[in-house]
Amino acid sequence: MLLYIVRRVAYAIPIALLVSLVCFMLVHIAPGDPIDSIVPPDTPKEAVEQVRREYGLDKPLPVQFAVWLSHVVQGDLGRSIASRRPIAGDLMLASGKTFVLAVTAATIGFSLGVALGSLAAFFQGTWIDRLCVGFAVAGVSVPHYWLGMVMVIIFSVLLAALPAMGAGPSDWVWDWVHIRFLILPAITLSVIPAGLITRTVRGTVIEILNQDFITTLRGKGIRRSGLLLHVVKNAAPTVLAVMGLQFGYLMGGSILVESVFSWPGTGMMLNNAIFRRDIPVIQGATLVLAMFFVLLNLIVDLVQTAIDPRMRRT
């Protein structure tokens, strides 16, 4: 097991390096001179030249990558073109807000998904099953930013019950003043994972229920709760893996929901950066989120293997 962990972690390192290479290239796939992508257009000439030297932009690409990476490793993600402020600090704040949103959406989506998925599996073929599957299909098919807009109209504009935008005053605290702001975006964001987890859980549970040993157990007249335990034990690795990845997707994929609700997280930061062609911010945010995702993948793999050693990746 220990050897596996070491090997798996070792494998994550080249992946992380290559991921940062992709992020590094973002500046270079942007049209025009990369220097124009990282300094404001009205920067005086001397200042431009200074940045060019500092980031080695006059050197070949591999050298540039090394220079950039050494900045990144020291926590320097460069400066925003629009605000001229260092990106790292803003990104930290924003990641915290996105994390709050993703955790909440994941909690809602996963509990709903597990509940509906198991329900559907146990009542396979009945109207309950069909209802749950219908919900799941709707969940993965709805353009969720549109759902968000509709909810704002109902709950903020017509009922004036919940705030329409933002994450509440100043820093995040888990109190009602702030949680009010979280409800609509979290529900909107939870729709997709809810639908997906419903499908996954349903599929996995049905598969397990059809397996020979369960049929045998049933034949032996085992109690419902005992049966449930078996199902949970066998379904957990697959379901956990999908959940882990989904959480990563929520962290990195909340850009539309954050934009609709002006939730001040990484997604909105990205959205604003895109409009301002603020490439350093796009690059920084992408890098941080992708690194988080790499880390999460690693954890999911390790946890999965710990639960069920058969799942080892070679």
């Binding site: 992946i15 992380a16 290559l18 991921v19 992709v22 992020c23 973002l26 500046v27 796939i29 942007a30 049209p31 990563g248 997707y249 962290m251 990195g252 994929g253 850009i255 539309l256 990205l270 950066a273 895109i274 490439i279 796009i282 690059q283 992408t286 989120l289 992708a290 995702f293 790499v294 993948n297």
Partner: peptide, 18 residues
């Protein structure tokens, strides 16, 4: 490597840069 990016993020980052 490309799996290490959430899909929405990758799409947005690439088309944002382009």
């Amino acid at each position: 490597v490309f799996y290490a990016f959430p899909s929405v993020l990758l799409a947005v980052a690439i088309s944002g840069a382009l």
